[in-house]
Amino acid sequence: MNPPAPVREAQQALVATLRREVGRLEGVRPPEDDRPLSTGVEALDRLLPAGGLRRGTLVEYLSPGSGCGAPALALAAAREACRPGRALVVLDCSSRRSRERPATESRATGFYPPAAAAWGIDLSRLLILRPANEADALWALDQALRCPGVGAVWAACDRLDVRDFRRLQLAAETGGTLGLLLREGRLRGQPTWADVQWRVSPRCRERPLWRSGRADSTSSPRGSALADHRCAAVPASLTHPTWRLRVELLRCRGGAGGQSVVLELDETAATWREATDHAPHSLPVAAELADSAPVRRA
């Protein structure tokens, strides 16, 4: 069914031209260095139309809550963007305390560099900014994105005005830096100036260790009982000890969103790869219906 090769090439060239044209209409200035930048995960690169991220753009990672793996995934992209000796700037916004306290005193959650080192970040090229208030944070983010000496900026910022967002995008375009923004999952569907928007959610497919039998599951809330039984329905061969994340491409400039992939962590190499034994429909709807029966009986 495929068209002959010359026709296909012509079609691809046309699509590329159109994409550029549309981008121009959208006000996107193509960077001088338009080689794609890897996201650090091969499976994610494949989802992107350019085969990777572009310098001078913003990337959003939405996650439903803390501990979901989005920071690590963003860090993998930062590692790639900082490859040729550029600096990584981390904006530690969580420390919004008064200026009187020294920076090393207690904060809510802070970026923890030893873990970043284990993820392959060169600590000598890592700079951590701790702005004291929101205005300073925005200013610092803007300055970092504008600086050509910075490869990537890693920041957790939930509250972002649309105008400020556009300002950041222009700053990234000016400096040719990659802006990695970690944001809350509820911001999905809000206006964004990010080129790429990922949604990262963890996957559970494991049978809980202490839960054995029905007595315990009845006392637990209905939701977790469902999860419990659903997990139990997965064959033992599918249970895997490593961490699994489901990453969905929500939005992507110049491409279609909506595709998703399940990643698993290779702990020794500190890299993510596509989970091979992942079947797209391994959690059928029917199983969920069947699960509720024991609860009703109890």
Binding site: S66, P71, A72, L75, S94, A108, T109, G110, F111, Y112, P114, A115, A116, A117, A118, W119, G120, W243, L265, E267, T268, A270
Partner: peptide, 14 residues
């Protein structure tokens, strides 16, 4: 720590 698994330490510390 840098020799160990990346999951040895968390990325955010309280």
């Amino acid at each position: 720590d840098s020799q160990r698994s990346p999951l040895h330490r968390p990325l955010a510390l309280y």
